[in-house]
Simulated scan of single mutants.
Amino acid sequence: MTLPVRFDDLGLPGRRHEDWRWSDLSAIEAALAARANDGAPDARRWLIDGVTGPVLLFVDGRYSAEGSDPQGVTIETSGGDEAHILSRLTRGAVGATLRLGREQAAGPIQLVHVATGGQAHLHHRLTLAEDAQASIVETYVGAPASWTNVAVDIELAHSARLMRTVRRLGEGGVHTETLRAGVGQGASFMGTTLLTQAENVRIESHARLHGIGAFASLDGIMLGRNRQTFDVVNRIEHAAEGGSSRQTWRSVADDRATLSFAGKIQVARAAQKTDAEQSVKALLMERTATVNSKPELEIFADDVKCAHGATVGELSKDALFYLASRGVPPAESRAILTESFLSDALATIGEDAVREALTADAIGWLRRGA
């Protein structure tokens, strides 16, 4: 397909569209005018120590065989999802294709994409057969005047289990992601995202629990300062009986950053005995920052247990005073309390090394601003 050369050519919905009213992707314009750096970066420094398994390296939307160790994971070209405007742009893009059966055991798979400038599109497909299990860690590193656009399609059969962890790091740029997940009977999908270094971010996730007893969690952390804008839109759709879901998001907004979260739980009439929870909490480090939260419940079944809550506040003055009375410096006190505030959103990561890496990323961000 012919990729757009101007921001207006993308045809993205404006702020009058309810799901896009908090999105600011204006930095894409600089990426469309920029070119990628011809030098191939060494992505090994972005790998998580202690994690074994396949390694796939992408640079500016192109697969790097030299820096990869696929171990059976294939690279294919995508057709894209014509129904979604951002996914549509991934038509003809490369991406990792994972198809696992119950007899296959996959160690944590690391995908690293480094954007050096310009636009880059990826499309990953993850299909797990009955009783299959897999863990995937995706690290996206952006440079100024770069745009990484990712589409992810997931399908989990009976009793399959998938853990997906995403890190957005780097020095700037734009990150957009569209995820579609189908979760079958007794299957489990756990997704955790950490957003730090990017000028603009929009992530849109839709998990459909179409099997009896299916489970999904869409958790994450947003850490923004300066004039960063992050927008996360989650939808978990319960379409079958006995399903359960969780959404746990924690945000820290500093300077003039704008962090937004819109999460919806949909329960169909046939989805009796659904158990769904949503917890959205944010800290304002400066009152010049902005946090937007929009939790929603849409329930058509009678026998359900659904709850949601959203809070925005500041660090406890009593807790800060207590730590100060014990001789802890103010900057250290703020970092300690903020680290504790973020821990809930990382609790579902199964591998210790991955959870520790994301915790270190978050702590590093906090300490840099202390």
Results as ranks from 00 to 15, higher is better:
H158R: 11
T148P: 05
S87C: 04
Y140N: 09
L162E: 01
A120E: 04
T127I: 15
A96C: 11
I75W: 02
D153K: 02
A160V: 11
I154R: 03
V141W: 11
G117Q: 01
T127R: 15
T90S: 11
R125Q: 06
S78G: 07
D153E: 00
L122S: 07
S78E: 03
D81V: 04
Y140Q: 06
A145Y: 05
A143H: 08
V141S: 13
M163R: 05
L89Q: 03
T127K: 10
G170R: 01
I154D: 01
R168N: 13
Q71W: 13
S87R: 02
H158F: 08
D81S: 08
R125P: 14
G101N: 01
D153Y: 05
A129C: 15
H124T: 07
Q104T: 02
V112K: 06
R102K: 14
T139Y: 05
T74N: 04
G118R: 01
L86A: 06
V73K: 10
T127S: 13
I154H: 00
T77R: 10
W147L: 13
T127E: 15
T165N: 11
R99G: 08
D153F: 02
Q104S: 04
L122M: 11
L169V: 12
G95S: 08
A145C: 10
H121G: 05
E130D: 09
D131K: 13
R167H: 14
E138M: 13
L100S: 00
G80K: 07
R125H: 09
S78I: 10
A143Y: 13
R91E: 03
G118Y: 02
H124E: 15
S159E: 11
T74F: 00
G95W: 00
T116P: 09
E103F: 13
A115R: 07
P108I: 11
V114I: 12
S135K: 12
A105M: 14
S159T: 14
D131Y: 12
G107V: 08
G107Q: 14
G72Q: 06
R125I: 05
P144L: 01
R88K: 12
S159D: 13
H113T: 02
G117E: 04
V73P: 14
L86M: 04
Q110S: 02
V112G: 04
G170D: 13
S146D: 08
V73H: 01
M163D: 15
A145P: 04
R168L: 03
G92V: 09
Q110I: 03
D153W: 00
A151K: 07
H158Q: 06
